[in-house]
């Protein structure tokens, strides 16, 4: 009988140890992972809205924004400069039906509703779709526009570029509907 007790004891020790080790590693890496996302947002915030100071934007800055739930807009960050005047917004948008799935965009829109810049928060496209991210001509075609339906896609990576265009368009529509004064 004590064989089984010995077995369960060993199993208990093994699982307890692994649980503890994982708990501690999660503690160390938890805020670093959150920080990675915030750094990304702050870096782009500073790049697109140079007058905005590079300090730590809080993640849930979207408490008071209307009808976020059903739309693909996940988060909105206000770009306020030192004198607290509103320069524009950064919208975190989920781009539907991309090739690799799960594409999330950060779209910077200024107060007049023009796209100031955009980048990928999560991007798992493979093949030629992968280098759409570095395709500057595609990016420049979008920046400075207030609607993207006349922007043409990247040859050979239609799936990825159409998903990006849809994401930017969602951000623009959301801006016109809710954020335009």
């Amino acid at each position: 009988m004590n064989k089984y007790i010995h077995l369960t004891l060993v199993l208990l020790i093994v699982s307890g140890l692994s649980g503890l080790i994982l708990g501690f590693t999660n503690e160390f890496t938890k805020d670093a992972i959150r920080q990675v996302k915030l750094d990304n947002i702050n870096k782009n915030m500073n790049k697109w809205f140079p007058s905005v100071p590079l300090e730590n934007k809080e993640e849930n800055a979207t408490a008071d924004y209307p009808d976020l739930s059903d739309k693909n807009v996940v988060n909105i960050y206000e770009a306020k400069d030192i004198s607290d005047t509103l320069e524009g917004y950064i919208l975190e948008v989920k781009a539907p039906d991309s090739y690799g799935g799960g594409m999330v965009l950060l779209v910077g829109i200024d107060t007049e509703g023009k796209v100031v810049g955009f980048t990928y928060l999560s991007f798992n496209e493979s093949g030629p779709g992968a280098n759409v991210r570095e395709n500057n001509s595609f990016v420049n075609r979008i920046v400075g526009k207030d609607s993207v339906n006349d922007v043409d896609t990247v040859t050979g990576a239609t799936y990825t570029s159409t998903a990006t265009l849809n994401g930017v368009q969602i951000a623009l529509d959301y801006f016109d509907k809710n954020l335009k004064e």
């Binding site: 077995l7 060993v10 199993l11 093994v14 699982s15 692994s18 080790i21 994982l22 590693t25 999660n26 160390f28 890496t29 670093a32 992972i33 990675v36």
Partner: peptide, 25 residues
């Protein structure tokens, strides 16, 4: 008797540690 399950737990713990540190840094 419990050789394989404990080995799997050890390997899975190591993989999760590598995954978390890579995701963070």
């Amino acid at each position: 008797e419990v050789r394989i399950p404990s080995f799997i737990v050890v390997i899975a713990t190591l993989v999760t540690i590598v995954q978390l540190t890579m995701q963070a840094y």
